[in-house]
Design a binder for these strands. Sequence first.
DNA 1: CGTATCATTGAGCTTAGTCAAAAAGTGTGG
DNA 2: CCACACTTTTTGACTAAGCTCAATGATACG
Lengths: 232, 232
Amino acid sequence: MTTGSTPSNSTGQYRKLLTHQPHPLKSLDQLAVILPCHRGQEICCQGNPANHWYCVISGAARRCVIRLDGRRQIIDLFLPGDVFGFSASEEYDYTVEAVAEGTVVASYPRRRVEMLADADPLLGREIRQVAFLALARLQAQLLILGRITALEKVGSFILEIATRMSSERGNSVALPMSRYDIADYLAVSVETVSRSLTYLKQRGVIKFSGTRIVRIVDRDALEEGERPAHAA
Amino acid sequence: MTTGSTPSNSTGQYRKLLTHQPHPLKSLDQLAVILPCHRGQEICCQGNPANHWYCVISGAARRCVIRLDGRRQIIDLFLPGDVFGFSASEEYDYTVEAVAEGTVVASYPRRRVEMLADADPLLGREIRQVAFLALARLQAQLLILGRITALEKVGSFILEIATRMSSERGNSVALPMSRYDIADYLAVSVETVSRSLTYLKQRGVIKFSGTRIVRIVDRDALEEGERPAHAA
DNA sequence: CGTATCATTGAGCTTAGTCAAAAAGTGTGG
DNA sequence: CCACACTTTTTGACTAAGCTCAATGATACG
């Protein structure tokens, strides 16, 4: 749909991007429809039939739920290589939106993929593996939300992003989202996010080059009280 | 292992229980090894190879992680019919323990099941579906942890348990776990859990028949500010 | 260059965590 | 059946972390 206005030239470039990018559903590249997204654009919407699975090619996407009181909660964050769109029912029970302008997403027709998986056990395993990764992501997020202080939440968040965007060299991380998004992701207020970042900066734990580019100076300090005991 | 001391008679009874209980992996009943558990007994342990998948037959189990500071967090709660043991890596990255004395769990050898799934696409789909259910459970838990006040967390918790233990008749729910467990599950202190319950009792929202049996008097009050906007 | 969004900072207040202790169950062995 | 130990649950007083409201700076974008 969005691609309608895009010159085929450009679509071809996205196609190349998909081909060159390693991701978990490589074997389905030929089935993929490529979706370049604007900032905030809905990729799939709560209540709609869950007919597609998706994989982030570049950029970032957020999975959110809006509460009655108007508060938004971000349930999950998708970065390049992450697969999403799974649902236990026939409808999506969440909405996914592009976070950054120009986020590119590959979309796969669910039923066709499932039929392919019926014939190809290896593909079936791949899909399960991808679902297990989604489980691991949610588990990590639960651990972050379970932290006591906001400072720990923000610290873990930076480390998580740093790990998942490992393509970035060194200790510099480009935060893919605004402070507001981070707040809704960590279930704290924007002000608290900002204050925590300022505090970490003043203590010399992190440094900023631009508001959204963080350099981790003292990783141990960020990890403080963060690791589960077994990892010690 | 635990069954070693159990007379075969008793094992036979558990087997019957499994046969009569509807659950998602019915087709694997013949493969199942039945594990009756003591209160607090470990079912699978963080760091061990993830060689089994499990299904709760009766009772309840908790998935936990222990932090460096000694705090425990309960990541997930398994009730009868819930399948667990999935891992994205070759090892469990969490520990699962029986909550109630006499909890019964069916255990399935992972590799054999995966081989069966290779040959039987329907089984493959069932496993995916079960994994999607696990995703939905974690999403629900994230929504609860994202709530603002402790009162809302406790309210949502009661409603969640009431829904998942739908076998219980009427509006009475038997809480499967102690206040401490609830606290670690909701990431609040025990005292706060207790105070919230007392408050709900005094406001006439719930009634107790015994400390762990709750009757929901005013469901709407519990749901207050709880529903995502779309559900309105 | 102006406007809208995003980010930071401040002040006051509320909620929930901590520490402490009492009360109510639960189970065990005599 | 009771006494005792232990766990679970509740309640109280104090403290501190984070939310709200409010305002000011910074950035991006047309």
